[in-house]
Design a binder for these strands. Structure first.
Length: 425
RNA sequence: GUGAGCGUAGUUCAAACGGUUAGAGCACUGGACUGUGGAUCCAGGGGUUGGGGGUUCGAAUCCCCUCGCUCACCCCA
């Protein structure tokens, strides 16, 4: 019988790598705490409709990447491919637009997209994200970018670059899209097959295309760029944002071709990229989504946020940190030599556990030699030995692995010494 | 969805033109050392060579199919 393996594009996160995850989670929580963004945990699956309407019917995510399935009640459900639409759903569902219109939330957890796995891309992957809903101000865009930047900085990630763009609002985007569509029609066969369809259905996405023919079109002098079509308010919004970023000393560049693959973005769009991950170079991305609420059937509600790929951050982190250095070392190795030793040491375990002191308890009738070797391998400096000899004396043996010194003592004395030893660490 | 590369013990790798019983290091377990340490020596467990089919007297090796992994396209976190 063949072994069952994990499904394609998924994996176990275990061993020393888990300490890198803890590190990322810790930094995210600390920044969230500092900026007072509250955690929200939405379901792993939602109505398919939520993503179809929120993310956009003609996006790649909705058209070919969703894990969609009917449940036994005939509902169409989808494993969440991203976190923003569910959060806006929660905001509206709880009536926050009425009772508490301004919220700052963060989230962390698995997302699912049906894609061919490659470096930095999995079918189940993890994101954390920050969302500020109810704030139309450019300063709030800046806070979101600042948070993304700060998390990266606190993790020690280097060689990151920030690109921003402005996709316009309902007022100016329509005119731009119309102009763009007219222009693309004139280009006809100069576009790749894919972009001919995009020109009709989702013309902004043409700017993303890397096909050589399309690149030529996109970079031709006559090609209309969003930046040249921004209305007064959008222009101002972007100027304000850029001014704040400069004052914050966050360096960025304007990428007029940055459009991003989700429909809900308006005005600010941004991406943080790295040069160290191969083809999947976006570490974090986000922007403003003032149309999302309406798309979900709610009233107009402004929002801005970002999501970051945890696997990608961890890949970068793994190059800087030795994960084992992040592990909290056990202080004590409890070495039973027989059943009586196990009993005696389990009492110690209860004592240590009550005080949240880390220890490792072995079981069985292993020899002293085995225990000392293992303690050494685990890098634990103090070994407590218990066997029949100790039981007869009513004592336990304390051994210091560095000095080699060992002392037999009564339980009460040993407990006191354990506490004293903990203080040193 | 498309393309390329790769699948041999837990792991890293061997096995000349197809050749008889698929080996080694590391790791693990035990012993030398009957209750005291990263060394040394000895021994042991582990494999349907990813799976299936074909060619052949004979396949880890050649052919086909399939599955998986990796990277890239696509797209994104």
């Amino acid at each position: 019988m063949s072994l069952i393996r994990v499904p394609k594009g998924t994996r176990d996160i275990w061993g020393e790598e888990i300490y890198l995850w803890h590190k990322v989670e810790e930094v995210v929580r600390s920044v969230a705490y500092s900026f007072q963004y509250e955690e929200i945990r939405t379901p792993i699956f939602e109505s398919t409709e939520l993503f179809a309407r929120g993310v956009g019917e003609v996006t790649d995510i909705v058209q070919k990447e969703m894990y969609t399935f009917p449940d036994k009640g005939g509902r169409s459900l989808t494993l969440r491919p991203e976190g923003t639409a569910p959060i806006m759903r929660a905001y509206l569902e709880h009536g926050l637009n009425i009772s508490n219109p301004r919220v700052k939330w963060f989230y962390m957890g698995p997302m699912f997209r049906y894609e061919r796995p490659q470096a930095g891309r999995m079918r189940q992957f993890h994101q954390f994200g920050f969302e500020a809903i109810g704030f139309p101000q450019a300063a709030c865009d800046a806070e979101i970018i600042l948070i993304a930047w700060l998390v990266s900085k606190k993790l020690g990630l280097e060689n990151l670059s920030l690109e921003i763009n402005n996709l316009g609002c309902n007022k100016c985007r329509d005119e731009y899209v119309k102009t763009l569509q007219d222009f693309l029609k004139g280009e006809g066969d100069n576009l790749c097959a894919n972009c001919k369809i995009r020109a009709e259905k989702n013309p902004l996405r043409v700017l993303d295309c890397k096909e050589e023919t399309c690149q030529k079109v996109i970079h031709s002098p006559a090609f209309p760029l969003v930046q040249d079509f921004l209305c007064e308010e959008c222009r101002e919004h972007q100027d304000d944002l850029m001014e704040i970023l400069r004052e914050l000393d966050i360096s960025f560049s304007i990428n007029p071709y940055l459009v991003r693959g989700l429909d809900y973005y308006t005005r600010t769009a941004f991406e943080i990229k790295t040069g160290e991950l191969g083809a999947q170079d976006a570490v974090a991305g986000g922007g403003r989504y003032d149309n999302l609420s309406s798309a979900l059937g709610g009233p107009p509600v402004p929002g801005v946020g970002f999501a970051a790929g945890m696997e990608r951050m961890i890949l970068l982190l793994a190059k800087k940190y030795d994960p084992s250095s992040l592990k909290k070392q056990s202080l004590f190795y409890l070495a039973p030599l027989d059943v009586s030793g196990e009993k005696a040491l389990l009492k110690l375990a209860s004592f240590l556990g009550d005080r949240t002191i880390p220890f490792y308890l072995e079981f069985g009738d292993k020899r002293v030699k085995y225990h000392l070797k293992k303690a050494q391998k685990m890098g634990i400096n103090t070994v407590i030995i218990a066997g029949k000899e100790e039981k007869e004396r009513g004592e336990l043996v304390w051994k210091d692995m560095v000095s080699g010194e060992q002392i037999s003592m009564k339980e009460e004395e040993l407990l006191a010494k354990l506490l004293e030893e903990r203080k040193k660490c």
